[in-house]
């Protein structure tokens, strides 16, 4: 697609605004689809920031955790993971937090959190759990990652025992999110999709809020 066409399309927001108006007229709320990964600090920042952005709006966050993502054959993958910690410290500072970790987190080590969230019931309870879990993971300290403290959070916030992360359904739920992310356009996380447009959620938090305003999902 030629750049001028992409630029022209990007300024044509009427369909998205109309769709949002129809949702409101039919009593439905707005949705932010958030593709994120528990193993990256930028997702921690994005989730906390986005939770604050939607507060007071008739908008919900659809939590779509993934494990596998990124550009195929990315030669800078390891350097990006190391840099993510440096950048994460700065992002944390923006929201008056301090990064607790000094080493990258292996994606497989926290895949159970992605599985639980992918199988959990979307809604405010799940959002509270996701926020608490990612806060604990990234801002609480540098200790080992154990399953049980997160299971306690799940019981408190969602209720019952967390889903079995080793079940075929858990793997499939996360893979479904990964496929959906690819179809939607984002090639990295965290990415937020609103009204047909996606942004890197750690880079454009204010812009996502402005876009929600433009779509009519303003704070009440």
């Amino acid at each position: 697609m030629v750049p001028s066409l992409i630029m022209a399309i990007s300024t044509f927001t009427l369909p998205a605004r109309l769709a949002a108006a129809v949702r409101r007229a039919t009593g439905r709320s707005g949705t932010v689809e958030l593709f994120y990964a528990y193993d990256e600090p930028s997702s921690a920042y994005a989730l906390l920031e986005l939770a604050s952005t939607v507060q007071g709006r008739r908008v919900t966050i659809e939590l779509l955790p993934v494990v596998s993502r990124g550009i195929d054959g990315d030669s800078a993958l390891e350097r990006k993971r190391a840099y993510a910690l440096v950048d994460g410290r700065r992002l944390a500072r923006r929201i008056d937090r301090t990064m607790g970790r000094s080493e990258p987190v292996d994606p497989g080590r926290v895949a159970f959190l992605a599985a639980w969230t992918a199988l959990g019931p979307q809604g405010p309870d799940l959002q509270d759990f996701a926020v608490a879990a990612i806060e604990r993971l990234w801002f609480a300290g540098d200790g080992p990652i154990e399953r049980e403290p997160f299971a306690v959070l799940w019981r408190e916030m969602v209720g019952g025992e967390p889903p079995d992360e080793s079940s075929p359904a858990a793997g499939e739920a996360v893979r479904a999110n990964e496929r959906r992310m690819k179809r939607s356009g984002p090639y990295e996380t965290p990415a937020a999709k609103v009204g047909g447009r996606w942004d890197f959620a750690q880079d454009r938090p204010r812009q996502i809020g402005t876009w929600l305003d433009e779509l009519g999902w303003s704070r009440r």
């Binding site: 992409i6 990007s10 550009i71 195929d72 356009g185 984002p186 090639y187 447009r197 890197f200």
Partner: peptide, 17 residues
Amino acid sequence: ESVPRSKRIHTIRDVKC
């Protein structure tokens, strides 16, 4: 280095905004 098509399209849209 190569840049995937999805990244190119997103970049132009994002930079415009």
